[in-house]
Design a binder for these strands. Structure first.
Lengths: 336, 336
DNA sequence: CTGTTAGCGCTTTCAT
DNA sequence: ATGAAAGCGCTAACAG
């Protein structure tokens, strides 16, 4: 079914049909009715790709995520997709994985599809290869980076102040009388570097010595949820050997914290009496485990909405800041 | 940058450039090199929509999910997207929500985008409105329904035998000496109806009387992960009132089971000594909670792969069965 | 108010 | 081996 088939059937020209479809003014009510009837009869739906070819608008938005299975990424993808769909755009979403070459490949796919804008979810996109690829392939469409920054004329950054959130968490631990704090790290990426800095400054600010020494182990690789739990467990084994007096542990992610708690419980260490635990992300896992987990909520829902809105603003020519920072919030539960 | 710009720059015709891009034979090595050089220089990427217009192939696959935030749906979307991307297709994924009218709307969007195939994830698509909409808008492309069936000439069904899995779970409970079994239900949908039937037959087969009476409460609405946990908790409150002697509870989903366990623990009921619990879905939540949850693995990863493969098979003209059923597996953990 | 024409970026005969 | 021309389904001037 093409517009010509409809036109022939209705005894009018293709442009008239087009006008009816697009609700353009300047058409007699009678022809409109006549054409609409045929349209309905055949359940005609226009080919938006063909339309896009002439209007030069794909109505596509590209979304790149490192791994959609990570729960706060899922949440982000969901919020953005809902919002964009509501605005008449269609989202093309890819889980790129950790590999930077692959990220560049996906950027090419976005160009192939002529997306009108893009959102990159996660600080792992804050790397040189991506920046270069964006310059080459997506330099004239707006791109919003969540929890990261690419610092290009066409990129916008929406972040949560996790660094500050971690500082507050350190303060909370200190206030609870904890003296021997450790920081458990997950995968190395820019956002996590910022969190780590938050721990260091938080410690220094409270006059706690040897912050460096207390930072634990850095691991490379991909941050799958299942692997993070296991890593948390293993890091805790090591931690307890090196620092038996530890009484407060700050974990870079909830999943890490969940693994950490598993091991502490296995060794008969009571939470929070002997050791307090704090995670990051405010996932459902932190509510499901027991004791329930104190966590730093990085407001991924708010951030996602802000990202979607920012993109729409740029797309519709409204003025927008290139950087936007939302506050994080410490959510207190049983583990502290 | 269009193919004509490249052609002019290289001093050849557009068709020659097209031939180089598509690696067609019958072109001299020298022109190929010359053209390729310009192509690389300008980082040229073809517009697949324009290509699709002439080749009549969008290379799009549509994916409809009720809610991508439900963890086994996320997993499915991930597996399918990876597989399809590997095959050169691009996925357009939508979270449709529970509303059946909305589902029909999304089907229209898939037609607008001229997807070449589609996968519907979840039994909630097994409804008349969807079937009608598919007949009207997607009657000539292959559609794979996961965990459900639409029973149309162009639809294919891939399912896990959860019914049988539940039967086995009932047998496990009986074998552990449990006499007073209850079945906690989540949201009403076709897949859950099948599970419920599994419980009933499982009970009857073991000669356990009054199966009906033991089936608990049916709730309508959307099955968000957070709401399911809360519902599990509340249903358990009711259950313990009506059936204080309950010593084995089968929950329709892990999330429900997690909520159920939360309440049992709150009331000081020991798991599994006093009451054994079994969930469905084999989510990470079941590994994170304590005690860890015995669950029925519905193999969503396998099912997703099977769905993706089935779709590819049809797309490439290989013979395919219209129905495919995979076995479920009971995973034993601490809660039994 | 409606039809004719051209063209979006690409591929594909058909000539040469 | 290469180019010219037509056309995919649609919209957008421009006429009338």
């Amino acid at each position: 079914m093409t517009i010509y088939d409809i036109a022939r059937e209705a005894g009018v020209s293709a442009s008239t049909v087009s006008r009816v479809i697009n609700k353009r003014p300047g058409i007699s009510e009678s022809t409109r009715k006549k054409v609409q009837k045929i349209l309905d009869e055949y359940h005609y739906i226009p080919d938006v790709a063909a339309r896009g070819l002439v209007t030069q608008a794909s109505r596509f938005i590209g979304i790149l995520i490192e791994d959609i299975r990570v729960s706060h990424h899922t949440e982000s993808a969901y919020v953005i997709e809902q919002e964009m769909t509501r605005q008449g755009y269609t989202c093309i979403t890819f889980s790129t994985g950790g590999d930077s070459k692959k990220k560049a490949q996906y950027i090419q796919i976005l160009e192939q599809r002529r997306v009108e804008g893009a959102i990159f979810i996660g600080s792992m996109f804050e790397i040189e290869e991506v920046k270069e690829s964006v310059k080459q392939h997506l330099s004239n469409i707006p791109i919003v980076v969540m929890n990261g920054d690419l610092d290009l004329p066409n990129t916008y950054s929406v972040q949560t102040d996790e660094e500050r959130g971690i500082e507050e968490a350190v303060a909370l631990l200190a206030q609870k009388g904890r003296k021997n704090l450790a920081y458990l790290m997950d995968v190395a990426n820019p956002a996590n570097k910022r969190k780590q800095r938050g721990f260091t400054t938080g410690m220094l600010r409270l006059g706690m010595e040897g912050a460096e020494r207390m930072i634990f182990a850095e691991v490379d690789g991909t941050a799958g949820p299942r692997s993070s739990v296991e890593r948390g467990r293993m890091e805790t084994v090591e931690l307890l050997k090196k620092m038996p007096a530890v009484d407060g542990i700050l974990c870079e992610t909830d999943m890490l914290a969940v693994g950490c708690m598993k091991e502490l419980k296995r060794q008969g260490i009571r939470i929070p009496e002997q050791t307090a635990i704090i995670g990051v992300d405010n996932t459902l896992y932190g509510q499901v485990c027991s004791p329930t987990l104190t966590t730093i909520d990085n407001k991924s829902g708010d951030m996602s909405l802000a990202a979607a809105n920012t993109l729409m603003d740029v797309l519709q020519g409204r003025p927008v800041n290139h950087r936007m920072i939302l506050p994080a919030e410490v959510i207190r539960r049983e583990s502290t």
